[in-house]
Simulated assay, not measured.
Amino acid sequence: MSADLALTPGPASSRWAALPVTTPGLVLDLDAFDRNLDEMAAIARAAGVELYPHAKTHRMAEAGLRQIARGANGLCVAKLGEAEAFADAGVASLFVANPIYGADKAKRALDLSRRADLLLATDSPEAAASIGTVFAAAGSRARMLLAIDSGLGREGVSPARAPEVARAIAAVPGVELVGIYTHEGTTYGAVDRADLEVRSVAAGRAMVAVAEAIRAAGIALPIVSMGASASARAVAQVPGVTQIRPGIYAFNDVGQIALGNASLDTAALRVVATVVSHPDPDRACIDAGSKSMSSDLVPASAHREEFPGHGLIVNAPGWIVERMSEEHGWLRWRGEGVPTPLPVGSRLEIVPNHVCMACAGLRRATIVQDGMVRGHWDGFGPGASE
């Protein structure tokens, strides 16, 4: 995609600026959302893998239930509180893909396991034991996946250490080790589609190899779980991968557009903002800052010339969100010729670079279908962050 195409409105542009939405606000195109859900569900179904969308992307009960209704096997979350909130909403299968520790959270996890099919994460025998002790005392076992570091350098043991750590965790009373998982975040650094395919397949194959090494140590390990929207389409096809956990795919954002996984038409969510200042022809300010859209640039530096700034302004090509403070988006003209005026009061539609942060910051989405407002979806309260 050329820089001109990236900054030129497509057929999905300028649909929502006039809607009765208080700015800054989220607007979700329900039809585009559903098409995205159906596409990924079909990919998972055809590949014979489970689909556990990462619902920390939105933290909205209605969105999660809609993902289940349209083919997801369960939901992935980042916090135990998120899992509890989705279980309250009726989701029956959940994976907390973030290690938890301690008796207090173990007791909550035990309670949750009695009303939902629950998977937990760990990457150490010590953390596993802090959970297993509580489950064992109740005559139960916590089903756990071992986190593997596939190159991001976040949580997870190295592939070389995985069999040793897996054996130690499998021996913990009250624990059943049932799989491995990773977040193959390095795939977001891909410079083009070919590079993305290579990185994704390599990550999937490396995880399958880790699983085989652990199985050779006598642990059944039925689940091999991969987790990134960037790579989901490719890793689903790797033999031996059994589960994918994409999150952003449901909405899409500039990061996915830059990778070639999405377009303006499949970017189902916009941040609507108002121009509140236009003191010079080549600069302006909007009422949406880092609390509304995040300060993230597109993940791969190779794409930042093509997709500059902190979001794609759909209905004002040539303008970019150059900088952000908490409540201000600082706009700068980067187009050719004389800047297009942005009168104070103008409303802009912006595809965020990182949709997860937009949902977390604004929390309420206005749902639009056929150009009409159909209602609102609200995100979970602060308790879901625990």
Results as ranks from 00 to 15, higher is better:
132 G>Y: 02
129 A>E: 14
309 G>Q: 08
219 I>A: 02
67 Q>L: 15
23 T>K: 10
26 L>Y: 10
314 V>F: 02
96 V>G: 06
310 H>V: 09
161 R>G: 00
54 H>E: 09
46 A>E: 11
29 D>I: 12
155 E>D: 09
162 A>D: 02
234 A>D: 13
384 A>Y: 07
44 A>W: 01
122 T>A: 02
324 M>K: 08
291 K>L: 15
282 D>M: 10
344 V>K: 10
150 S>C: 12
231 S>Y: 02
176 E>W: 02
227 G>E: 00
79 K>Q: 14
258 A>T: 07
129 A>Y: 12
56 K>V: 10
145 L>D: 00
226 M>Y: 08
344 V>G: 12
239 P>T: 11
155 E>S: 11
338 V>R: 11
169 I>W: 10
203 A>S: 15
207 M>Q: 03
99 P>G: 08
146 L>W: 15
330 W>M: 11
200 S>R: 04
151 G>N: 04
213 A>T: 06
320 I>A: 01
22 T>L: 09
335 G>M: 07
281 P>H: 10
360 A>Y: 04
212 E>Y: 01
74 G>C: 06
180 I>Q: 00
102 G>H: 07
301 S>M: 10
275 V>D: 11
210 V>Q: 00
55 A>P: 03
67 Q>H: 11
62 E>L: 14
359 C>V: 09
198 V>Y: 08
340 T>K: 06
284 A>L: 13
222 P>W: 11
270 R>K: 12
250 A>V: 15
113 S>H: 00
226 M>F: 08
1 M>K: 05
16 W>M: 14
54 H>T: 09
93 S>D: 12
34 D>C: 13
358 A>Y: 04
161 R>A: 14
276 V>I: 15
266 T>G: 02
358 A>M: 06
279 P>N: 06
187 T>I: 01
281 P>Q: 06
129 A>V: 10
123 D>N: 15
123 D>W: 12
146 L>M: 14
19 L>Y: 08
365 A>T: 13
36 N>T: 06
201 V>C: 00
49 V>D: 01
223 I>H: 10
165 V>K: 00
315 N>R: 11
217 A>G: 04
44 A>T: 04
249 Y>T: 14
83 A>E: 10
169 I>L: 05
359 C>E: 09
14 S>D: 15
385 S>L: 15
329 G>D: 01
191 V>K: 09
165 V>Y: 03
33 F>R: 08
75 L>Q: 13
115 R>E: 02
226 M>K: 01
320 I>E: 13
228 A>H: 04
24 P>S: 11
13 S>R: 08
242 T>G: 05
149 D>Y: 07
150 S>R: 00
292 S>W: 01
267 A>F: 09
139 G>N: 10
81 G>C: 10
67 Q>S: 14
120 L>M: 12
107 K>N: 00
171 A>G: 01
121 A>V: 12
233 R>Y: 09
362 L>Y: 03
